[in-house]
């Protein structure tokens, strides 16, 4: 019984991100466009891994307020807008940011709720 339990724990530990709420929120709010694997869709929806917003709290404003006609990748204009997710708390935004950065940005540094709250206050 014990080996089976250990195996289950090992498998679940290997598969799961430490940011489970972030993962769930990403799946529900973000993955329809950015896809489960974060690769986006051609030149319509940008991939996350190569975004300049990766790595810290900088993406908090984009998640909370969206983007409109300002999405570029390299020099290519992407005609889509990104919807705002105004209903998210700063904790939820933090969890999404940490899930995204942990999954697609190396080296990973954890973003704190305080950093996100500061970033949200400074949104244009």
């Amino acid at each position: 019984m014990l080996p089976i339990l250990l195996l289950i724990l090992t498998v679940s530990a290997c598969n799961d991100s430490p940011y489970m709420q972030g993962k769930r929120l990403y799946t529900v709010r973000c993955a329809n466009c950015h896809m489960e694997d974060g690769t986006g869709l051609s030149r319509l929806i940008p991939p996350l891994a190569t975004s300049k917003l990766m790595g810290g709290a900088a993406m908090a404003c984009v998640i909370a307020n969206g983007l409109r006609d300002t999405i570029f990748r390299d020099s290519v204009y992407l005609p889509r807008e990104m919807p705002a997710f105004k209903g998210l708390s700063s904790t939820e935004v933090t969890n999404i940011i940490n899930y995204i950065n942990h999954t697609w940005h190396k080296p990973f540094t954890e973003t704190t709720i305080l950093e996100v709250e500061e970033a949200l206050k400074a949104c244009p």
Partner: peptide, 16 residues
């Protein structure tokens, strides 16, 4: 529809 914020990108990816 092109401004679809929900399922369309996933469907288009499968079409691709």
């Amino acid at each position: 529809f092109t401004s679809c914020p929900s399922i369309c990108p996933k469907v288009i990816r499968e079409m691709m």
